[in-house]
Amino acid sequence: MFDDLQELYQQVILDHSKSPRNFRRIEGATRIAQGHNPLCGDNLTLYLVMDGDVIRDVSFVGDGCAISKASASILTETIKGKTKAEVEELFEKVRTMVTTGEMSGSNLGKLAVFAGVHKFPARVKCAILSWHAVKAAVAGEAAPVSTE
């Protein structure tokens, strides 16, 4: 029905937006970061349990469009067990992918479903919101982030 939209709304994205993974609060989280795009109405809160530089657990709650929710959901699956430095490296790769579509040699795994976003410039900020939030969280920044 919407063949041209399959690239943006891949099945994996629709699945994660309807049934987001790690969709819960973590009592005793060591870092909490908020991502808010007031124009869109995307409003996500990420919870991290950090052990030194390593992310032991991560979750999120909130509301937003399919892209922002799926992005946060897949983010939580991806970064568990990763270090601060690895998250920062991933952030750069994800940003490059969603703004340019470029991901050669990036080894992004499931995150590659967001490559289609670069053709929808108005939606880049939705895909990148949770990544800005997690980047702020691992850096220990407390202020809410926005990608608008």
Binding site: D4, L8, P38, G41, C65, A66, I67, F120, R123
Partner: peptide, 20 residues
């Protein structure tokens, strides 16, 4: 979500507003 709706409608040539 309103923004998903507006994105899809745009692909059908329909200019809507989604937001606050």
């Amino acid at each position: 979500h309103a923004h998903d709706l507006v994105t899809v409608a745009d692909q059908r040539g329909i200019a809507l507003r989604g937001g606050h």
